[in-house]
């Protein structure tokens, strides 16, 4: 009993540290990445390669005054950043980093991640409405239409995977992808997943970008149109917590993509040992791709964004679902 409590406590501390460190250093990755994609240098003054920049940023954000403008809804304004961060941290509970490295191996892990991820939009919404700012409210209206539109194809592709693997337990899903990279769900060359899975992967990745409000779908914070969208009125650590939540959500999205399609902690070649290192490598490759996409593609138009989901992604993911069902029935 005591060991179980200690284990849970260790995981609690570990998860919070992991989320916070990732949030801090993804900002650095983002700034360095942006700089190099644009042939600049990026942060370089604080520490070697600017590696201590996140600490300096954190100190700056924490020492800044928390401005609460007139006319805002004080309670909602303060709660909203937490409502973005806390559910994201909760989702880490069931992510299997390694074969035995998951805080709780929940049978409904996939559902749990989706359930907590769906609260994130409520936080953005209440924060924008609470800050009584027109730009923020416009951003909120956009965020909701975007989230409703992209949650459907995301869930549809996930359901197709659940049908193929017959489980919602994330660790079990990873175990089923063992034995080399040709067993990963992405390109499963055995007859247990539908042949459309690579397309499902693309859909899932696109919806993941949209759900985490990343460019080219960053409608919540379209800085050239809406000042800073939902975050317009936030200063100091309020802004900081919002951004930690955003980056934690990106980490969750990348981790989920890794687990569902890229074999989680399974090694790519059968003779190499499975370990958490593979998981982290795959996850960071995906996160790097997310940064890469942000600084390569311009933001889409809002109507194009909605059309992409309703007219392209949802029909294709429905076809994927039907093909998967038929495939499973035939083979």
């Amino acid at each position: 009993m005591t060991t179980e409590l200690i284990r849970l406590l260790a995981f609690l501390v570990g998860i919070i540290a992991f989320a916070a460190l990732n949030a801090a250093y993804l900002v650095w990755v983002e700034r360095k990445g942006a700089a190099h994609f644009q042939r600049r240098i990026g942060p370089k003054e604080v520490g070697p390669y600017g590696l201590l920049q996140p600490l300096a940023d954190g100190a700056k954000l924490m020492s800044k005054q928390l401005l609460i403008p007139d006319g805002v809804d004080p309670i909602l304004f303060k709660i909203a950043p937490l409502m973005v961060l806390v559910p994201a941290v909760m989702s880490f509970v069931t992510i299997p980093f390694g074969e035995h490295l998951a805080a709780r191996n929940i049978d409904l892990g996939l559902l749990m991640v989706f359930a907590f991820a769906s609260i994130n939009v409520l936080g953005l919404l209440l924060g924008s409405w609470g800050s009584a700012n027109k730009y923020a409210v416009i951003a909120a209206a956009r965020v909701i239409s975007q989230n409703i539109a992209y949650e459907i194809p995301m869930l549809l592709t996930a359901i197709a995977l659940v049908m193929a693997t017959n489980t919602m337990n994330l660790n079990e899903m990873v175990s089923l992808q063992g034995g080399g990279f040709w067993h990963w769900n992405l390109i499963k060359l055995t007859f247990t997943a539908s042949p459309l899975t690579p397309i499902a992967f693309l859909i899932f990745f696109t919806t993941m970008l949209a759900e985490t409000n990343r460019a080219p779908f960053d409608m919540a914070e379209a800085e050239s149109e809406l000042v800073a969208g939902s975050f317009t009125e936030y200063s100091g650590m309020g802004f900081g917590v919002f951004f930690m939540g955003e980056y934690a959500n990106i980490v969750i999205g990348a981790a989920l993509t890794t687990v569902l399609f890229l074999g989680g902690w399974q090694s790519p070649l059968p003779f190499l040992p499975n370990s958490v290192v593979w998981f982290l490598m795959k996850m960071y490759v995906i996160i790097f791709t997310v940064v890469w996409i942000r600084w390569t593609f311009p933001r889409t138009q809002f109507y194009a964004l909605l059309n992409l989901s309703w007219k392209v992604l949802i029909p294709i993911s429905l076809v994927n679902l039907i093909v998967t069902a038929g495939w499973l029935k035939v083979f």
Partner: peptide
């Protein structure tokens, strides 16, 4: 309950 009522109905 979380997914539907908090994530969808309230939104």
């Amino acid at each position: 309950e979380l997914l539907i009522y908090v994530g969808a109905v309230c939104v």
